[in-house]
Amino acid sequence: MSITQFLFYFLTVLALFSAVMVVVSKNPVHSVLWLIAVFFAISGHYILLNAQFLAIVNLIVYAGAIMVLFLFVIMLMNLNASTEPQKNNWLKLAGVIAGGCFLMVLVSLVKQANELNNIAVTMGTGEIGLIKNLGKALFNDFVVPFEISSVLFLSAMVGAVVIGKKA
């Protein structure tokens, strides 16, 4: 087993375990912290694929900013294990079935996709994830979608400010 494989299995186990803990934790704050652990593990996978930019942006945006907002909301609403509404068992069963179906769709999608057939993952060698190549792709081949999405973000920001001013 090479060090890359070792790291791959370690990160995979970490990601899956943390993901399960997100769901089973009674305390919402614990769930958020386990979710942060999931993001760290996934960033580790990105680094194994030599996509360093993606890895660090995943950490900054998701683990650093969005999860802090999650924590804000949970802390301000003072949610904890005792105030969590207990759903009845039928709802839980329905949730499991719906989630299972979604998983099946995802797995079959990955299995059927032509792009993914007969392609082995190249660990730690690909160049496309490096920031230089990513920047060139974004600003040469995908300029229009990139700019449109940035306008979308701007409009969302302006909208949030307007709503905030009204309240």
Partner: peptide, 11 residues
Amino acid sequence: LYIFGVVSMGV
């Protein structure tokens, strides 16, 4: 960017 990531973890 690494430094930014770590700073945002400091919170």
